[in-house]
């Protein structure tokens, strides 16, 4: 076989798209359709499923608009990961396929399903409204247009990266908290909230923050980092979430929710002992009454199985706790400083 034929084989091949299908008007449950088409290297997943729609099955339904990675319409799960179909190369996905030559395509998760690859976006819009995802200008509306705000490089950089968000909802789809609680604020909305809260032109920081620390808010995040790994614009979403938390802790303390108290209990333990005092963690997070009511049966079972955590007096400080405390002090100091700086402005 000559070099040119080898190359030819690499440049074009049969690819199977295993696509999630469901039309609530006729189907009782979802199923997969396999479409096998011959494709050339360099083609995107969106162009491939467009080809299927135009030439094989016109009823295949998905959203797509700009085809250039900026409108956010065509987010879907490709090989178990949410991403934009228009910026995803088929050949890259072939490398990741579990079954050789087969690319699995599914709708986004954590949003109500409409048909095939289309999900309902209204819940996300509703949350943007609930958490005031807009700049509430320091300038009264009658004054708008007369003069521009002066914004320093530093102030600009605080929100610049977050404004890359195209609301494609890939992070929403992969969020592990949303899997459990549909009411959870969601990573995209936290990112946008952060972007508004650090904007020097915005006037409703405190009010927005007060909403974010309620139940299903910023303290519910478990730091799994899925959102950040997923983000199609490579936005450090977790920095935004941490940013809101630090801001909330500094200006509101730990009284807001069990999430905040949980975080504080962690911090205390690490500072004092270098490890967790698990036995009292539920009490410090949720109080005695809640713990007795909800965890007593489990505690009894743990005693029977001899799996109880050591009682607090037996949790000794880790070796090298002094060095750890020093580092801890350094790590936490910037939170307070950031806050002082903000309120000093």
């Amino acid at each position: 076989m000559s070099d040119s034929t080898i190359q030819h084989h690499e440049e074009s091949r049969d690819v199977t798209f295993r696509v999630h299908r469901f039309n609530p008007q006729v189907d009782s449950k979802p199923y997969f359709d396999d479409y096998t088409i011959r494709l050339e290297k360099g083609i995107t997943v969106l162009r491939a499923i467009n080809y299927i729609k135009e030439h094989v099955d016109s009823s295949l339904t998905f959203r797509a608009f700009c085809q250039a990675g900026i409108c956010g319409s065509c987010a879907m799960r490709i090989n178990n990961m949410s991403k934009l179909a228009c910026t995803t190369q088929v050949w890259d996905e072939l490398d990741k396929a579990r079954e050789p030559g087969v690319i699995k395509v599914e709708p986004l998760r954590n949003l109500p399903h409409i048909k095939d690859l289309v999900v309902e976006m209204d819940p996300l819009v509703g949350k943007m409204q609930k958490y005031s995802n807009w700049v509430d200008s320091k300038m009264p509306e009658e004054q708008w247009g007369k003069k521009e705000f002066l914004v320093s490089e530093e102030e600009f950089l605080a929100y610049d990266k977050a404004t890359d968000c195209i609301l494609c909802a890939s992070c929403v789809s992969e969020c592990t908290i949303l899997r459990a609680h549909k009411e959870y604020v969601s990573p995209a909305v936290l990112l946008k909230s952060y972007r508004m809260n650090v904007d020097s032109r915005d006037a409703m920081h405190d009010q927005r923050l007060a909403g974010l620390v309620q139940d299903h808010g910023v303290w519910d995040c478990t730091h799994c980092y899925r959102c950040q790994e997923t983000c199609v614009k490579n936005i450090p979403i977790m920095d935004a979430i941490h940013g809101i938390r630090e801001d909330a802790y500094a200006s509101r303390g730990s009284k807001d929710t069990s999430g905040a108290r949980h975080a504080e209990a962690f911090m205390d333990d690490i500072e004092k002992k270098g490890k967790l005092v698990e036995a009292t963690l539920p009490i410090r997070t949720n109080g005695v009454v809640w713990t007795l009511k909800n965890l007593l049966p489990m505690a009894v079972k743990m005693v029977i199985k001899r799996r109880t955590p050591p009682p607090p007096p037996l949790v000794k400080a880790s070796k090298g706790i002094d060095a750890l405390r020093k580092e801890f002090k350094e790590m936490t100091s910037h939170v307070g400083k950031d806050h002082e700086k903000k309120s000093g402005e």
Partner: peptide, 14 residues
């Protein structure tokens, strides 16, 4: 109109 957009939050480069 550019200033108005700035006043309502458009992140213009500076």
């Amino acid at each position: 109109i550019i200033r108005e957009l700035d006043n309502m939050g458009t992140p213009w480069s500076r």
